[in-house]
Design a protein around this nucleic acid. Structure first.
Lengths: 194, 194, 194, 194
DNA sequence: CATGAATGAGCATTCATTCAT
DNA sequence: AATGAATGAATGCTCATTCAT
């Protein structure tokens, strides 16, 4: 699966052939079928692995006596670090989602779509456990999660598009401020941004 | 190109064959080559069309005597309406981005990636023209645009994932509030949301 | 047909499309069908034209009071000049002969093969009319013609292969000597060659 | 490659499809790609094989104490036997030379043209090693080789055109005489030909 | 006479997958 | 467990040819 990830990143999920994956793994294509029933199964396994990494972050323990904004920032940094670490793979999957069209037969398992949703629901769940409703401004946690994941996706996209240097995680304060106060900024803290 | 859009949506950008596109258009595959040099050219033409639609919104005139938040909301509604109208196509393209791998040669024209960026830059430009820097909280307009487009993407994703009923444009107030004040909500207006 | 010749030379008989020929002629492909029933017919027409040029040389009058070797040299120069003038086309056709395989149906008319033979038979006929049997050493005129045309083909090939400068016709004395005396040279004249 | 040769002969180099070659070989078309990267590669491999056969003849040892004419005749017989054995394939290739037009890029490897030249140069080399300059009448060995190969080509052409019976090798004495003495014949031996 | 538009028939090539060894 | 060999099923693209205008 590590090898497959590399192949997907370098060649693209769809364009990577079984040969490519096998070469990366040091096997022949035929051998892959000892471990996976199909290419689709490999794709899904790699996707699942990635999603699992994200979900695991939501379950990592946090220091007990923190406020929601403090816990939020820690989570955000962890997520951004993970995004950064897996950025190539994430973008690759973002590009392969509908590859198989509208699920002919509806049977091809975990699409990227589904994985994206699982990540959002995981975050929404974390929100429910870590924030009181009024700390989310009364918003539906799932919607909030959706907006946040979207924002991170937007950042990721720009980060890659411009081959930006520096850590994506450095953007955490920006995202945190935006998340809590929007463009109006933190009125209590006063405006002091880049 | 209308036919191609339909085929892409139904079958997926990659899986749609020239036969599929042609059938949808009432032609044979060979005929398509009278108008496009390759399948890739069709894909790019459709992408460009979609991007052009978005960019056009940024140039539509707005009533003169409006505040930035008011102008913002109008733009947001227009964008959301467009997203809604083209939702299937957008999701399809979101899934086909890296299809050709890591751009061997870097020459295959307008990828989805590029189109996504053009949309963000178009929005950033609109921000510069319509908001004073302090109205964006001093943030870089491009970053703000990126976050906003990301949020909309997140909403679109959920909307489709759950085959949500109702207009996506109905979410405009939600996004507006979130954009200006984050989860903390509009302190002046008081918190009274669903 | 001039345009077709150009297209054949530049692109190859098989690879030249009707579009190519038409472009060269200043027409559209469809228009060609006003004058020729098929591409095959164009190919044959061009071939025939070339063969006719060769055959015409065999009918050009020669000064009356010349010896066979003298007449031979004049003919040779004329042939070589023609070969030189049409060298590109000749080589092109040499490359397209069996293109259509073993004549499926046997109906596709004048192949290059046939044209090659017509040229040989024309030369054999000229030999019969211009040389007494003993002047050909008692050889069958057709065989002699075949050997001679072969030699010229060999020269042409090398001439093109090495982009040789100078006139091919300059080789006439060489070929004449070889034709009459082989490598042993003209015993009467003594050996004085390059 | 044996199968490819058969297919080329029967159907023509260009018209033979991968299917044809595969069928002849008892495989499917896809299987051919296990051994050759493209059809062009097959063509070149078969050409090379043929050329190699010819070149090998030039390296076969000859009895030591023979005169040049005697060695020449032995070589000639061997060449003619090879031409006879491979006649169909040779004629097929003679027809496929310029198939790819004027070598766009000039890189498509061994064309027939090149193979033809290699054969001539091989013969020229043999001449240099086996004949004293005066035995070639002072002629450039390459030119002599070119003329000789041309003559053989002319004979081959006629042999096939008329589906001639009998061995092509039987013509060796004819070619030898012509090569050494031209149409004037061997003055020492007196004229006694068919 | 000329052509834009359209197409049927092909063709080289790719690739996930199978299976005997 | 591993693979060399093989393939069925596609797929993008080409091109000679037709025909209504």
């Amino acid at each position: 699966m590590e090898a497959a990830s590399r192949a997907f990143v370098e060649i693209g999920v769809h364009d990577a052939t079984m040969q490519d994956i096998a070469r990366e793994a040091g096997y022949t294509a035929a051998s892959l079928y000892t471990y996976f029933r199909s290419k689709q199964e490999i794709v899904e396994a790699v996707m699942d692995l990635l999603t699992a990494e994200f979900l695991r972050v939501f379950e990592q323990p946090l220091p007990g006596n923190l406020t929601f904004p403090q816990r939020f920032e820690i989570l955000l940094v962890r997520q951004l670090e993970l995004v950064e670490k897996r950025r190539a793979l994430m973008l690759t999957f973002h590009s392969a989602e509908a590859e198989s069209g509208r699920c002919p037969g509806g049977s091809h398992g975990q699409s990227f779509h589904e994985n994206f949703e699982r990540r959002i629901l995981g975050l929404a769940d974390w929100m429910k456990r870590n924030a009181k409703p009024e700390e989310l401004g009364g918003h539906d946690p799932e919607v909030v999660a959706r907006l946040l994941v979207g924002m991170v996706f937007g950042l990721l996209h720009g980060w890659v598009a411009r081959s930006e240097q520096g850590n994506l995680a450095d953007r955490a304060p920006l995202v945190r401020d935006f998340f809590f106060h929007g463009v109006s900024g933190n009125p209590k803290a006063g405006a002091k941004r880049k």
